[in-house]
Every structure is written in structure tokens, then in C-alpha cells.
């Protein structure tokens, strides 16, 4: 592998890792507030990608503008999902049943996409689709860069929201210790609902970013479920920085392996990392107290 090729795939890996990090942050939010593993996250991701494509197809405007619709829509859907579905499950079996419930939601979304827009592969054609920028000798597709900037900006916004705002503090308190948070007067139910909404909003942003340079089809979300789940386990369930680091490392690793072995075998990296993590450190490499029991 030549030096420039290595650098090129390294840069691509960072770009991919950024998107992974954003999506994994959403998953961590769900898990943090409700101890729910959201299988449907990647289905919502694909749904957002389809909405972006449909928006572009119907209006001819830039798919990024669809964010103004999809982000509030997904936020509301997330709040609704938490309040109407997840909160109804019995606490004793919440973890297992919520997996099944979100799995059902994922299937529903996949089926509905297939019914409405058929199984045909879709792709957004943009004026800047084919163009590249030079970056220290590496040539990067503009769409990938836009996706990365979008993911990075949202991740930064999320970080600011969680650390600086009053709501963010309430959310983090809920994640750390629900009962204690209730004792100091935080309405944890409401916070959990809003946390779910925020999580789904990351799926909206991620999906739009994905739609820019990927061919989409209804069952695509299965390709995302595995890697994302692996990332949150490797990083440690419930740890936002942990998942972000794991996302970056695995994204770069995938990108590097891709050059040598092709896309399919590069994907197995995630699963190998998952199994190694479980054998060596079941609570994840950056997970704390929270991850051990789940």
C-alpha cells in the first residue's frame, strides 16, 4: 500500500468515523435514558435518507434543506415513541422487550419504505456529486466532506447542549442515576422522552448525510445495525465519549482494511472487535458502572 493511498483511506476513515460517531451518540442517548437498545435507529437513518431523496426528487432543491423538516419530525417521533411505546413496557423485562419492540419498528419502517417507494435502489444526483477536493494530496469527494461537516457540527451541538444547558444537565443526571435525579426534582419521564427525540434527530441528520453519497434501498439498514451495535458495545454502553472514540477507531480501521481486502471483509472488523471486546472486557473499553449489567 503506497503512502498516498494510505493517507487517502485514513482521511476517508475519519470522515466515515464522524458519521458513525454521530449515530452511535444517538444510540447511547437512548440507552442512557431508558436502558433501551434501539434496533430501529438505523431504520430511521434509512428513512431519513429516503425522505431526503424524495424531497430532492420532488422539489429539486438541495437535500440538505430537508433537514428542516426531518429533524423536527424525527424529534417528535422519538418523543412519541418513548411516551407511547417504550414507557408502556414492564420495567422488569424492559431491556429485552424494548429490543423486540424497536426491532418491530425497524421492520415496519423497512416494510413501509418498500411499499411506498418500492425496493428500487435510489440515489440523489447533485451538481457537486462528482467533484472532489484536494487535501494534502488526498482527493476527497465533496459530498463526503459535507456529510462529515454535518455530522461534526451536530455532534458539537449535541455536546454543547448536554454540557452547557440546563436541559443537558438534567439529561445527564437522568442517565447517571434516575432515582437521584427524580429526588432533585427532575421530571425524568419527560427528560427521557426528550432524550429519545434527540437520539432520533441524530438519525435524521445522519440519514441526510448518508443520502448525499450512498445508494439507498429499504433493507440497507441491516448493514448499519451490526456496525453501530458493535461500536456501542466496544465503546461501552452508555458512554458518549467512549462510543465516539470507538466509532473513529473502527471507522478508520474499516477504511484501511477496505483497501486491502475489499468492502465485505472490512465489515467483519466490527464483529471481530465486538467478540474480542466481550472476551477481554465485556463492559466495553470505555464503559463504566452502567455497562456491566446490560
Amino acid at each position: 500500500m503506497s503512502g498516498s493511498l494510505l493517507f487517502q483511506s485514513l482521511v476517508l476513515g475519519v470522515l466515515l468515523g464522524g458519521l458513525y460517531a454521530l449515530l452511535a451518540a444517538g444510540l447511547t442517548l437512548y440507552f442512557g435514558v431508558m436502558r433501551v437498545v434501539m434496533i430501529a435507529h438505523s431504520a430511521f437513518l434509512i428513512l431519513a435518507a429516503y425522505l431526503a431523496w424524495y424531497f430532492n426528487d420532488q422539489t429539486g432543491w438541495d437535500p440538505l434543506l430537508s433537514l428542516f423538516v426531518t429533524v423536527p419530525l424525527f424529534f417528535a417521533a422519538g418523543v412519541g415513541m418513548q411516551r407511547l411505546l417504550i414507557a408502556r413496557l414492564r420495567p422488569a423485562t424492559l431491556t429485552m422487550m424494548s429490543v423486540l419492540l424497536t426491532f418491530a419498528v425497524a421492520l415496519l419502517i423497512e416494510g413501509m419504505i418498500g411499499l411506498i417507494w418500492s425496493g428500487t435502489q435510489r440515489r440523489i444526483q447533485l451538481p457537486y456529486s462528482g467533484s472532489n477536493v484536494e487535501f494534502f494530496g488526498a482527493s476527497i469527494a465533496v459530498v463526503k466532506l459535507v456529510a462529515f461537516v454535518l455530522a461534526g457540527a451536530s455532534l458539537g451541538l449535541l455536546y454543547l447542549l448536554l454540557t452547557k444547558s440546563r436541559f443537558g444537565r438534567a439529561l445527564r443526571a437522568t442517565i447517571q442515576h434516575k432515582e437521584a435525579a427524580q429526588l432533585v426534582g427532575i421530571k425524568t419521564d419527560r427528560v427521557a422522552g426528550l432524550g429519545f427525540g434527540l437520539g432520533l434527530a441524530t438519525a435524521a441528520v445522519g440519514g441526510t448525510a448518508l443520502a448525499l453519497d450512498a445508494t439507498i434501498y429499504p433493507s440497507l439498514h441491516w448493514h448499519w445495525v451490526g456496525p453501530l451495535m458493535a461500536i456501542i458495545v466496544v465503546g461501552g454502553l452508555g458512554s458518549v465519549p467512549g462510543t465516539a472514540i470507538a466509532a473513529m477507531v473502527l471507522g478508520i480501521g474499516q477504511s484501511l482494511l477496505q483497501v486491502e481486502f475489499g468492502t465485505t471483509w472490512a465489515q467483519t472488523l466490527f464483529y471481530i472487535a465486538l467478540f474480542v471486546t466481550l472476551m477481554v472486557r465485556p463492559q466495553g473499553f470505555f464503559g463504566g458502572r452502567l455497562a456491566q449489567r446490560f
Binding site: 451490526g226 458493535a230 464483529y271 472476551m279
Partner: peptide
């Protein structure tokens, strides 16, 4: 042995991951 080191959610994740890897 790997999957049963964890409970609940992680176990489900591992089980799904196992199918996906075999599919690949």
C-alpha cells in the same frame, strides 16, 4: 462463551451480530 459474558441488551446485540457476520 463470548455472548453469555454479558446480559440483556448486549446479548441480543451479539446474537444479531453473529447472524450478520455469517451472512457476510
Amino acid at each position: 462463551i463470548a455472548a453469555l459474558r454479558v446480559r440483556g441488551a448486549s446479548f441480543v446485540i451479539v446474537s444479531i451480530a453473529f447472524v450478520l457476520i455469517l451472512l457476510l
